[in-house]
Design a protein around this nucleic acid. Structure first.
Lengths: 342, 342
DNA sequence: CTGCTATTTGAAAACGATTACATAAACCGT
DNA sequence: ACGGTTTATGTAATCGTTTTCAAATAGCAG
């Protein structure tokens, strides 16, 4: 069932049928109705791949996610999706399972023109390659980023937000503060570690290398690394964890060691995933504007696809420290922190 | 940069270039190398959409998921993905956010030949339409299903597994057992409810309609419905919850009401998501073979795409009751249940 | 009714690969 | 060296749209 069949039935040319479908205003009311009736009668469906082939656009954008399981990305995705659908783009997802190789495979779909553009929520593959791709195809980075790359990027300031989280612990009286990082080949891990260290330095607290343990984002690794910290000769009294998942794992490790959160060890996470406010005790954490990151990224991608020019390329959105139970803070009537920990 | 350029440089016809790319064994070693060198030199990338257009296949399959956030589907997806990649298919994801309308939109991608086949993890749209699609395109159902439909399906037996879960609570001495269901327009919800009721009936326990509350899969709804149950004149002593997320919400509601799990109210969930073994107290739940459901579904889809015939169309995989803390069971040395509840 | 412009339409050429068919080259046994 | 096979290559048609360009028609002022 092709356009030609419709054309024959409606007694017009395929050109006219095509126009009815794509720019209806160009064809007279009478023929338009005739054609639409024919389409209806034949139950004709345009062959989308043929159209894509001819027009060289797919109206599909792809989002590359490092881990579909991670609750954090759901909010970002939702933002992307909503903005995309509103603009007649379909969104498809590619899950790399934290594997840079998979990331490259998906990126090559751009080369192959299978999608009109791409939002990367992970940027671990080769910098040069990425730069080259981004020069030739619409690409936006969100959450993660890469230094020295001229690609439009939406993220938060990971250094200052980490610093803020650690400063909060320091304000509560902690000085033996540990940090469970993400994998060090991910730039976000390095950034948050730097923020952690900056906070220590500016408060004249010694940087104890034993207090830094590298996790892999998973609950389990948070659990394991926390056990290591607890078994130190002088265990930390507080720990800042790269993300909420690992923070939850860490809390479990603390509980199972017969210790209490926050009394024995305070915990601060990152991302403010839903579970942070569900888990007992509730997680103190840094909230990222997930949805806004998503919409902003999609907005930029659309401009790129439409070859609109735009001045600002890097967007740094706000973040917020959400004080709950695991840090042990208490806010008194004057709305000031109560230091409750040696 | 097209095939013709490569052909010219290598001094062969486009047919030969095409053959080098798709059936290398058909061309002599000498010309093959010549062509590959030309491809290399020009950095030629085949235009995939053109190829798709000509061959009428995309080598892409789509998985339609009701909710990307739900931890349960991650395992299924992983199974699908691994089997697909092993067979040279790309997987893309479509998240319907539990919206049947979105489900239909994605399904129409099949009509448009944008994907070679589809695995539906949700089947809420019109039955007739689905039947019609499945008659003409490769479609496999997994997890959810639809009655009276001849579509290949992979799932567990939701009725008997629910019955098993509730029977477990009864064996522990409970008779005031409530059930927080999923949305009743989802067949799985109706199945598990039926299993719940069967267990009651076969143990001569009265079916108290007040003990049945409909949730919407979310943690929050589990929380809210549990509060309702607690505030009943005669609250239940145990609750079977449609999924682990809502079970976690329910546990939080119990805790916040000053009651204990499992002493005051026992809880059994469903799915065995990762958080079930992380949350305190650990969740007793029904484990589904997520990964196997995924691989099996993809295996069937591949057979469909390749037009292989296969006898068995419906696969019902095993499930397992995982006894942890929230049901209050204790297994004694003889490996038998200890009844610990009036 | 004529001539001029604006609006609709159609014929045919793309788009870039694959592949059926034909032909040329290579190989082989006698 | 010759026919007969097998193997390797090229020619050209094809997939189903969109779009350019030209032609036809309609609309309208004088």
């Amino acid at each position: 069932m092709k356009m030609d069949d419709v054309a024959k039935l409606a007694d017009v040319s395929t050109a006219t049928v095509s126009r009815v479908l794509t720019k209806p205003s160009m064809v007279s009311k009478k023929t338009r109705e005739k054609v639409l009736a024919a389409i209806e009668e034949l139950n004709y469906q345009p062959h989308v791949v043929a159209r894509q082939f001819r027009t060289r656009e797919t109206k599909i954008i792809m989002v590359v996610v490092p881990d579909i399981t991670s609750a954090f990305f759901a909010g970002v995705l939702r933002g992307i999706e909503h903005y995309a659908v509103k603009n007649n783009y379909q969104v498809i997802l590619a899950d790399t399972e934290n594997n840079p190789e998979r990331e490259r495979e998906y990126i090559s779909l751009l080369y192959q023109k299978q999608v009109d553009g791409m939002i990367l929520l992970t940027a671990r593959s080769n910098q040069q390659e990425l730069a080259h791709i981004a020069d030739n195809y619409p690409v936006v980075l969100a959450c993660e980023y890469m230094d020295g790359l001229n690609i439009p990027t939406v993220s938060i300031d990971n250094i200052s937000s980490a610093r803020k989280a650690v400063q909060h612990l320091i304000d509560l009286g902690h000085s033996r503060i540990a940090h469970i990082t993400g994998p060090m080949d991910v730039i976000l891990s390095r950034d948050r570690l730097r923020g952690f260290q900056q906070a220590l330095i500016s408060n004249d607290i010694e940087n104890n290398p034993l207090y830094i343990q590298e996790g892999d984002f998973s609950i389990k690794s948070g659990y394991n690394q926390m056990l290591k910290l607890i078994s130190l000769e002088v265990p930390p009294s507080a720990v800042f964890v790269f993300n909420d998942e690992m923070a939850i794992g860490a809390i479990n490790a603390i509980k199972e060691s017969g210790l209490n959160v926050p009394e024995d060890i305070a915990v601060v996470g990152f991302d403010n995933i839903e579970m942070a406010s569900i888990f007992t005790p509730n997680l103190t954490t840094i909230d990222q504007p997930k949805y806004d990151i998503g919409t902003k990224a999609m907005e930029l991608l659309l401009k790129l696809i439409r070859k609109e020019t735009f001045s600002k390329k890097k967007y740094v959105l706000d973040n917020q420290l959400i004080v709950r139970q695991t840090c042990g803070a208490e806010i008194n009537a004057n709305n000031t922190l109560v230091k409750n920990k040696i």
